[in-house]
Design a protein around this nucleic acid. Sequence first.
DNA 1: ATAGATGCAAAGGTTTTGCATAACT
DNA 2: AGTTATGCAAAACCTTTGCATCTAT
Lengths: 131, 131
Amino acid sequence: MSVKPTKQRQRILEVIRDAKGHLTAEEVYKRLAIEDHSIGIATVYRNLKYLYDNDLVNRIQHPDFGYVYDSNLNQHYHFHCLSCNRIMDIEDMMHHELNKEVEEKFGGTVHSHMAYFYGICPECLAKQEDN
Amino acid sequence: MSVKPTKQRQRILEVIRDAKGHLTAEEVYKRLAIEDHSIGIATVYRNLKYLYDNDLVNRIQHPDFGYVYDSNLNQHYHFHCLSCNRIMDIEDMMHHELNKEVEEKFGGTVHSHMAYFYGICPECLAKQEDN
DNA sequence: ATAGATGCAAAGGTTTTGCATAACT
DNA sequence: AGTTATGCAAAACCTTTGCATCTAT
């Protein structure tokens, strides 16, 4: 990373990159604590903020768990499964043209947008059909 | 309302309807406390949940303030002004067809989606141009 | 009388902060 | 040496919960 690397900071980033999902600060902390019993939760929070501010991780609000972090920096939409409560990335779908549409309808300037889809994910749907 | 009305519940709903904006639980509480010093914050939280569950108010996640409530029950997108930090409704723009697109790309079933646009609202833009 | 709602205070959970110590440049 | 990060503990938040009291059928 271009910003100051520290041992803890690097490990936090690695954990998020390895996870390939969305982790809460608490989950990151638990995974790090396995290998490093002395790490503090404050360090995790501070570094997650730091990594987010420096565009090294992405962050979204989970309705139940507060912020969750992932390493997918490409702009993308999210799918929230109402059955298993996971959040997943939707790749290859980003309607940038909506920004212009809002500018025309609403005025002002629009930099970006995020979208959040609610439903049942393929795996949960398959499980339901098994029954 | 079709569900049990109580004095407090009605006033909470009125406050949200009058606000014509997005209020946090705390803001609702503060406005009610002016006229009724004995109201408890727990009552506000309980009733906001109750009103939301009974589809009398809408609720969205604010990235900084947790849940915020408004009385606009139509599905609509939101505009978040990065200058004044307000959230505003975007009327007459709801791309329901995106749900189908996600189902095709991602699988599963999609019930609904929300979108959140970030930028500078018309008023803040005007102020910037004044300088 | 009964069911539900309220207000208060306490508890829960998450995130931030103060501070002394430690790790870097 | 001086700056920044760390770990610990405490504090600050926000929200929920337990419980006794009150309200309305």
